[in-house]
Amino acid sequence: MDLNQAIVKAAALLGAGIAMGIGALGPGLGEGFTAGKACEGIARTPENAGLITRTMLIGQAVSESTGIYSLVVALLLIFTA
């Protein structure tokens, strides 16, 4: 592996790490916020717990998708660059 290839590989690995780290920030915040709001909702109306939990899971999965995209980008950088 000559120097140019090594630099490209190192940059790709660094980029993968940065993509994953920054990309995980948003979903983490969003999911935590959703869970907190769901907790409030369940505390207010415990009889709706099932419905609230289901909606919360779907909402979290949707807000997770940017994190998943950054994971896919990181995998691409690691394996193909």
Binding site: A61, S65, I68
Partner: peptide
């Protein structure tokens, strides 16, 4: 793309 990548990314990430 969104639903496919969500499932794929979760399972693949977990497996790795």
């Amino acid at each position: 793309v969104s639903i496919a990548f969500r499932l794929f990314g979760n399972i693949m990430g977990g497996a790795i």
